[in-house]
Design a protein around this nucleic acid. Sequence first.
DNA 1: ACTCGCTCCCCAAACGGTTGCAGAAATCGT
DNA 2: ACGATTTCTGCAACCGTTTGGGGAGCGAGT
Lengths: 350, 350
Amino acid sequence: MPVTIHDVARRAKVSASTVSRALGASHHVRGTTRDRVLAAARELGYQPNPAAQSLITGKTGNIGIVVPDLGNPFYTGVLRGVQSRARAGGYAVFFADCEEDASAEEALVRSMARQVDGVIICAPFSSDTQLNGLRSVTSLTLLNRRLRGVPAVFMDSAGGMKQVVDHLAALGHRRCAYLNGPHNAWSNRERRRGLRAAAARRHVAVVEFGPFEPKFSGGVQAADLALASGVSAVIAYNDLMALGVLSRLADRRVAVPDEMSVVGFDNLLYAAVCAPPLTTVAMPMEAGGRAAVDLLLAGVGTPADGDPTPCRELSTNLIVRATTAPAPDSSSAARPAPPPGPGKVTDTDD
Amino acid sequence: MPVTIHDVARRAKVSASTVSRALGASHHVRGTTRDRVLAAARELGYQPNPAAQSLITGKTGNIGIVVPDLGNPFYTGVLRGVQSRARAGGYAVFFADCEEDASAEEALVRSMARQVDGVIICAPFSSDTQLNGLRSVTSLTLLNRRLRGVPAVFMDSAGGMKQVVDHLAALGHRRCAYLNGPHNAWSNRERRRGLRAAAARRHVAVVEFGPFEPKFSGGVQAADLALASGVSAVIAYNDLMALGVLSRLADRRVAVPDEMSVVGFDNLLYAAVCAPPLTTVAMPMEAGGRAAVDLLLAGVGTPADGDPTPCRELSTNLIVRATTAPAPDSSSAARPAPPPGPGKVTDTDD
DNA sequence: ACTCGCTCCCCAAACGGTTGCAGAAATCGT
DNA sequence: ACGATTTCTGCAACCGTTTGGGGAGCGAGT
């Protein structure tokens, strides 16, 4: 039923190989012949069979991407960037949601491996060992995860965190809570690293909680802990959690930002929309997706040379909205003093 | 480099065809031989080449899905359902975002056609003619769009709208605005149809605006128009628009729900989270995605028989939250009114 | 006229599997 | 022990495409 290269060949009265050459590398085929072939192909509506092509060329024209959670707009943002760039380059894209499970992530990459030219793993949950195992099965590019020898694009979370701390310190906050995201997430480690460095420099004390699920419900859960710890500001791992915090604080009649400041990460649409609009760090999601595709496609076919593994770092920036304000007067002691909670206190004011 | 069926055959000291049979249809291969083959395959880490398989079998083991807007959580919701069901059935999934452009949609389906066993088109923007053209190129299943002879799953938008109108009428609203989504969207037509029928029955006047972009910005734009029209309630095409309306009304110091009631469609996470939480109609997004996959896979390989084209309708239901309240100038809503029974009850005071 | 060198096209062999067919081996009855 | 029957395995063709090598045709140089 589908039209093959032989149908075109018959109609153009040439051989199949001539058709192939006329459509592809125009090497060694006369102009008039090529025109005839092209016309025949168009009339018949010929579309080459990708399976047959990839069987012989070894290239599939596809790339894959696996993300931890399709419900998180951050990942759908990078998905968007990936898909638009890939399509523009003539690539089709496979996707999969590993639901924040490392072994599912690995299995998905393996199952994709045979029908793609490479896969992008977004904020991988897998261990370095697992990831290294995957390198032999297909060409990899990572987003927000560092691994020796693997091309990757990073978003400067630590830099964003520095901006957050500077902002908070300028507003007079001396004691902040950080709500951890997943313990093994590179982004969480980076944010924490940036937080500690900046907090030390600005003489801000930090209380840490978590890890929590990086979702709305995680934020709801965390809010009470942060509230009990006597901080004047809480920095959430991401916007979803920050929104959960906001919701819980509203339920408990804690005024934001007057009694408590809240900061998130990602700059989702909903951060701008909610009441009050959330102060947050904008992450370049679509740009990250596009950059990952560029790196992946550039690396295809390049064996392990002596040249360094290509990386790209994308900058982030703080967007100040309505959930941050000057710290309430610390002498008022409206809230109970810091109790011995499950939080770990990193007091750098010495 | 990759291990082929011949490598396995050599190691197991059988022919390639025996390996093929041992791994696939276990017909006609001795138990001991099969064990030997399986062991060899496992030791070598053999994975069949899907391109070669699909070349000969004609099946690819892939399905495709195209959605209008990856930035809309409604579509990422169905994407989730699709991907989980497809993976469970051993299928990999291609996806694409047509950005609400009909011709892009058609082009994307065509480009996928050769490497999938079928594609799901989610809330298609294409014309019936375009869609019919696509039927010849691959097997289709539609979500929220009716087309003669094409399997489809529907969400009962009209039924949801009826619940909305009943709710609003019971609260004493006599005059509502409807903010149209895309003019050619099946869902929008269904919602409007349901609205007109229910409004007539309940003696509620309806003012329509739009079409608008089904996004936050569209709602912001629409809010002023609705406000100027003197209605006491506004029904938005979807939650994104409803959130836009909420935001604009807050800016203009219009109290929700006391001065104006607002209703959306979709029941996105953010509808539950925002302040005030949005009254909305829950659409079964993931279930819809799963159902679409089931229909698609059931239809694969079934030629045009005399049997009816399979369809599934999923029910929707209203979720009342904090954006709907009795109409401001409605004295009748202040005291308990007789519940509206189907058919017999008529409003007399008009 | 013969050879040389081009240009252009066709033949045929892959790529990695699946499957119809036929032949070999095992099983069985007598 | 021998053929009949069943069970297993190998051979080879095929799916649709790309690609190296060879050959036909032809103009030009000597």
